[in-house]
Design a protein around this nucleic acid. Structure first.
Ligand SMILES: [Zn+2]
Ligand SMILES: [Zn+2]
Ligand SMILES: [Zn+2]
Ligand SMILES: [Zn+2]
Lengths: 143, 143
DNA sequence: CTTGACCTTATAGTAGCTACAGGGTTTGCA
DNA sequence: TGCAAACCCTGTAGCTACTATAAGGTCAAG
């Protein structure tokens, strides 16, 4: 199949497929006489593997490693696999925590303005300006 | 003061300050005879304003707008300010939701492996391979 | 024989920095 | 006076994971 059909079947754009090939995540497929890429079923599965990992937020570098385990002797321990997943879980977890703090801060800032009123009176702008001048702010106040 | 001192006082690297100037977030300061940037107190406050907004996760484009409201007539309504903050809150909120789904999926995947064992037996790898072949997976199973 | 839908490569753009390379300036000290 | 350390300058490239062109080649239908 051509790249367009692979794209349609996986829901991944042709350009992304070419990008994965350039990045070494997908092996370079055979070419037709006119230079068109020709894919087979294994390519589709390899791409699906990548997309599935991507949908879990895994970075391409980790997916490369994960895919590489298929080339390793099957008797090796799987702890490196687990480590990659655990790392991803903790990355995601700390992002969540950071964003939750952010949301609280933003809501504290937002609460300074009970619109509608003018720019001169806006509690949000006043808070931001005050903080820039060194005053305590609603959002970063530790109390 | 020179750029290095402004950097030290704000905890922002010199290169970042120059970057903000290039991006039009900070006005170009006066220069010494040898071409060194010379900053005054207002610059420090403007930079602090930017950094404070950045710490709330605001994109530079929004900070540019937010800073621009200082040049607007003070009698204008502040609803555009509120809209920017509300937008940011909803961005952050939807990111949190997406990441929380991700974390659950990752933990479901992680639960397939009760290490230690081998690559051939690893439930994580088996799940990923199965999903690539079109089977249902622990992580994306809707049940 | 031409139109349209494919495909190819190469390059640049996105966000927000960060890290050089390759130079000039200023300060202090022997 | 000479020199080195610690500043500063510009310009460019790198990071992630794509996305979007530009400029061209190929193929099947009508
Ligand atoms: Zn307001
Ligand atoms: Zn604050
Ligand atoms: Zn395992
Ligand atoms: Zn899954």
């Amino acid at each position: 199949m051509q790249i367009g059909e692979l794209a349609k079947r996986t829901g991944c754009e042709s350009e992304t497929i070419r990008y994965y090939e350039r990045e070494g995540l997908l092996p370079a497929p055979a070419r037709s006489s006119s230079g068109y890429r020709r894919y087979e079923q294994p390519h589709l599965e390899q791409l699906a593997f990548i997309l599935h990992c991507r949908s879990l937020g895994m970075p391409l570098a980790d997916i490369r490693l994960l895919a590489g385990f298929h080339q390793q002797p099957a008797a090796e321990p799987c702890d490196r696999v687990n480590a990659l997943i655990d790392q991803q879980i903790s990355r995601v977890h700390s992002q969540i925590e950071a964003l939750q703090k952010l949301e609280i801060q933003l809501q504290q800032l937002r609460a300074r303005c009970d619109s509608p009123h003018t720019l001169a009176d806006c509690g949000i702008l006043k808070t931001l300006d005050g903080a820039a001048a060194g005053e305590a702010c609603a959002c970063h106040d530790e109390s």
